[in-house]
Simulated scan of single mutants.
Amino acid sequence: MSALKIKTGDTVKVIAGKDKDKEGKVLKVDVKNHKVLVEGINMVVKHAKPSAANQQGGIVNKEAFIDASNVMLLHNGKATRVGFKMDGDKKVRVAKATGEVIDK
């Protein structure tokens, strides 16, 4: 499997699914299953039992993972594909739309 082009902390735009055209920050990346957890995207309802951490229990709204292929990285406010390039001896991400280096 190729390297995942989305990292934790990136701002992404959803390009497919029920939350299409919404934007959010990546909270977690699951490289093995090729999925990302995005803030405020793919909200699901969970029924939680009362526990020590959650005394009340009840219905909880939380984010669920979304496939990484359904999001695009936002660079300078514009959705772009991501490529890789060698910058000296360091591998860096590059925005395909502009050719700019994303992470220094």
Rank of each mutant, 00 (worst) to 15 (best):
I6S: 01
H75W: 13
G17R: 05
G24A: 02
V92A: 04
H34V: 15
K46P: 04
T80N: 01
K32W: 14
M86E: 11
R81A: 15
V82R: 07
K46C: 11
D10N: 02
V14F: 03
A64G: 00
D19K: 07
I59D: 09
R81G: 15
V12L: 11
S2I: 15
I102L: 14
N54K: 09
D10M: 01
Q55M: 08
I102D: 07
A68V: 14
L74D: 05
T98W: 00
K25I: 15
K49D: 09
V60G: 06
L74H: 03
N70W: 11
V44R: 04
Q56H: 11
V60R: 02
N70R: 08
H34C: 14
G88C: 10
A97H: 12
G40D: 03
V36Y: 02
K35E: 12
L27E: 08
G9C: 03
V82W: 04
H47F: 15
G24C: 02
D87L: 09
V29K: 03
K20H: 13
K20C: 02
K78H: 06
V31G: 01
V31I: 08
S2M: 12
K91C: 10
P50D: 04
E23C: 01
L4M: 11
N76D: 08
T11S: 03
V14A: 04
I6Y: 06
V29T: 07
L4D: 06
G88E: 09
V71I: 05
K35Y: 08
G83H: 12
I102T: 07
K85F: 13
K35Q: 12
F84T: 14
A95Y: 11
K18R: 07
H47D: 11
S51K: 09
G24T: 00
E39K: 15
A95D: 13
A68M: 11
Q55R: 15
K18D: 01
V36I: 09
H47N: 12
D10Q: 01
K22Y: 08
E100W: 02
A68N: 15
M1C: 14
A16M: 03
N61M: 00
K85M: 15
N54W: 06
Q56L: 10
G9H: 00
G77R: 00
K13F: 06
K62R: 13
L4K: 02
K18C: 09
V44A: 06
L37H: 14
P50T: 00
D67F: 09
K35A: 11
V38T: 01
A53F: 08
K90G: 07
L27R: 10
V26S: 11
K49R: 10
I6W: 02
N54A: 10
T80M: 05
E23N: 05
L27H: 00
K49L: 08
V31Y: 06
N33M: 10
E100D: 12
V14S: 01
M86Y: 13
V92G: 02
V71A: 11
L4E: 10
V36S: 01
G57H: 02
V14Q: 05
I6N: 00
F65Q: 00
V45D: 04
R93C: 14
N42I: 05
A53S: 10
G99C: 04
V36D: 03
K7W: 01
K28H: 13
K28L: 11
K35S: 01
G9E: 00
A16H: 08
F65H: 09
K49W: 06
F84P: 13
G9W: 00
N61W: 08
E63H: 07
